[in-house]
Amino acid sequence: MNVFRLIGDLSHLLAILILLWKIWKTRSCSGISGKSQFLFALVFTTRYLDLFTNFISPYNTFMKIVYIVCSCVTVYFIYVKFKATYDSNHDTFRVEFLVVPVGGLAFLVNHDFTPLEILWTFSIYLESVAILPQLFMISKTGEAETITSHYLFALGAYRALYIVNWVYRYYFEGFFDLIAIVAGCVQTILYCDFFYLYITKVLQGKKLSLPA
């Protein structure tokens, strides 16, 4: 474990908690893409199947459980509890265009052709594009609530910090995982446009609005 990965994990945890807090406090999931949250729940459930068979550390197990529980609760909030506030008219990204290619790629490019490894690879590839429905929804509505932009910033920052963690581990531990690195770079690149808007608008106290 290094400081970059720790801050990255905490940023990820913060993002997940910000989203849950926003939905719970405002009792509304307006502006939130249920499809992205469903994909994130899929990412965690396919990545942490070794939760009970491969013990790494108390921290690792604790975080995996938190991620799985929070992502499922978020999906429950959006599609069940606060269903009336879910903006399905703007959440129209075709997720099958993500899941099918990612599933195929996971079969073709992986480290080991075993079920657990292929599911892990699927999860890594899926995570890199899981935010697309959310970014697409914001581009359609033309704006995002400030709390939602803080959520997205923390979520984007987490994988950007993981890239720094991979550079660190390469130079100091000789460890690198090309699949995770490439997917992590793709994931972070997808946030660049949002990062620019967040830094130039939200941090200036303005509302995040995309040029319609």
Binding site: R5, D50, M63, W120, Y162
Partner: peptide, 10 residues
């Protein structure tokens, strides 16, 4: 091959 132990990242 990547052993399962390598999967120490979240």
């Amino acid at each position: 091959e990547k052993s399962q132990m390598d999967k120490d990242e979240l």
